[in-house]
Design a binder for these strands. Structure first.
Length: 155
DNA sequence: GCCAACGTTGGC
DNA sequence: GCCAACGTTGGC
């Protein structure tokens, strides 16, 4: 089973927003980076584990989710009113993809970015690389397990 | 608010 | 194909 990290600004969409969504499921639309799209489209499979990362405000891993539906066209790219409208997208070639994600758990406390940097097992994470900006990235099963344990251990 | 790092665009 | 300029991301 694959493991991934997905980023969101909590002011835009937080782990609490996901928990409050109907059935805890939401469409992960608006991704407009080709590398991130390719990870979703070519890599993510039903049931894959997701680390839900809050960026910008109190940056860190806020909880867990899972892939509830594999990649399908992100038609918000066709909508001129949508925030992530892309004039190049057409119904024949929507360009962008999205998946559905389902809430699994909210950590009692966000596992801060600084705490991740302090763990030797996580030193190789893409997330921790200087200048890393990818909003969807793979993590290893070990990295997933370590961060999951850190989050669930928090009281 | 600052600024480093990145992806994209467009001139040539 | 190169690369400078630009807009964006995101930590601090």
């Amino acid at each position: 089973m694959g493991c991934w990290l997905i980023k969101s600004e909590p002011g835009c969409f937080s782990i609490d927003d996901l928990a409050a969504a109907p059935d805890g499921v939401t469409g992960w639309d608006g991704v407009r980076n080709f590398q991130a799209r390719n990870f979703m489209r070519d890599g993510m499979r039903l049931g894959d584990g997701l680390l839900f990362y809050h960026s910008v405000t109190n940056p860190g891993v806020a909880g867990l989710a899972e892939v509830a539906r594999e990649a399908y066209p992100d038609l918000t790219a066709l909508d001129p009113e949508a925030q992530h409208y892309d004039p190049r997208a057409t119904p024949e070639n929507p360009i962008w993809s999205m998946v559905d994600v389902r809430f699994v758990a909210r950590f009692a406390r966000v596992v801060p970015l600084a705490a991740l940097r302090a763990v030797p097992e996580l030193a190789g994470m893409e997330l921790l690389r200087k200048g890393s900006r990818l909003s969807v990235m793979p993590v290893t099963a070990q990295e997933f397990a370590v961060i999951r344990a850190m989050g669930l251990a928090a009281t």
